Amino acid sequence: MTARTGRCLCGAVKFKATPKIESDGVHVDACHCGMCRRQVGGPMMAVNLEGAPEIEDDSHVGVHHSSDWAERVFCKTCGSNLFYRLRDGSLHTVNAGALDDLSDAKFAVEIFIDEKPDYYDFAQPTRKLTGEEVFKMFAEAQGK
Results as ranks from 00 to 15, higher is better:
residue 1 M to K: 07
residue 2 T to P: 07
residue 2 T to K: 13
residue 3 A to N: 15
residue 3 A to G: 15
residue 8 C to I: 05
residue 9 L to R: 11
residue 9 L to M: 13
residue 11 G to M: 06
residue 12 A to Y: 07
residue 12 A to E: 08
residue 13 V to L: 10
residue 14 K to I: 14
residue 14 K to L: 08
residue 15 F to C: 00
residue 17 A to T: 06
residue 17 A to N: 03
residue 21 I to G: 02
residue 22 E to N: 15
residue 23 S to A: 15
residue 23 S to L: 09
residue 24 D to V: 09
residue 25 G to N: 14
residue 26 V to L: 04
residue 26 V to E: 02
residue 26 V to W: 00
residue 28 V to Y: 03
residue 28 V to T: 00
residue 31 C to Y: 00
residue 33 C to P: 02
residue 34 G to Q: 07
residue 39 Q to N: 08
residue 39 Q to R: 11
residue 39 Q to V: 10
residue 40 V to P: 03
residue 40 V to T: 08
residue 40 V to F: 01
residue 42 G to S: 14
residue 43 P to V: 02
residue 44 M to P: 00
residue 46 A to Y: 01
residue 47 V to A: 00
residue 48 N to Q: 13
residue 49 L to E: 01
residue 49 L to T: 01
residue 49 L to P: 00
residue 50 E to W: 01
residue 50 E to Y: 04
residue 51 G to R: 04
residue 52 A to G: 13
residue 53 P to T: 03
residue 54 E to V: 13
residue 54 E to D: 09
residue 56 E to L: 14
residue 56 E to W: 06
residue 58 D to G: 14
residue 59 S to K: 14
residue 60 H to D: 13
residue 60 H to I: 03
residue 61 V to R: 05
residue 61 V to S: 11
residue 62 G to T: 09
residue 63 V to D: 12
residue 65 H to L: 14
residue 66 S to Q: 10
residue 69 W to M: 14
residue 69 W to N: 15
residue 70 A to D: 11
residue 71 E to R: 14
residue 71 E to C: 15
residue 72 R to P: 05
residue 72 R to L: 09
residue 72 R to C: 12
residue 75 C to L: 03
residue 75 C to M: 12
residue 77 T to R: 14
residue 79 G to S: 11
residue 79 G to E: 11
residue 80 S to P: 05
residue 80 S to K: 12
residue 81 N to E: 12
residue 81 N to L: 08
residue 81 N to K: 11
residue 82 L to Q: 07
residue 83 F to T: 06
residue 83 F to V: 04
residue 85 R to Y: 06
residue 86 L to F: 15
residue 87 R to Y: 06
residue 88 D to C: 09
residue 90 S to Q: 10
residue 94 V to N: 03
residue 97 G to Y: 06
residue 97 G to S: 13
residue 99 L to K: 03
residue 106 K to I: 01
residue 106 K to Y: 00
residue 107 F to N: 06
residue 107 F to S: 04
residue 107 F to Y: 15
residue 107 F to T: 01
residue 109 V to L: 15
residue 109 V to N: 02
residue 111 I to Q: 00
residue 113 I to E: 08
residue 113 I to R: 01
residue 113 I to A: 13
residue 116 K to V: 04
residue 116 K to S: 06
residue 119 Y to L: 07
residue 120 Y to S: 08
residue 121 D to L: 09
residue 123 A to P: 13
residue 123 A to H: 14
residue 124 Q to F: 10
residue 124 Q to I: 08
residue 125 P to L: 11
residue 126 T to V: 11
residue 126 T to A: 04
residue 127 R to C: 04
residue 130 T to V: 02
residue 130 T to E: 01
residue 133 E to A: 06
residue 133 E to Q: 15
residue 134 V to A: 10
residue 134 V to G: 02
residue 136 K to E: 14
residue 136 K to R: 15
residue 137 M to H: 13
residue 138 F to G: 01
residue 139 A to N: 13
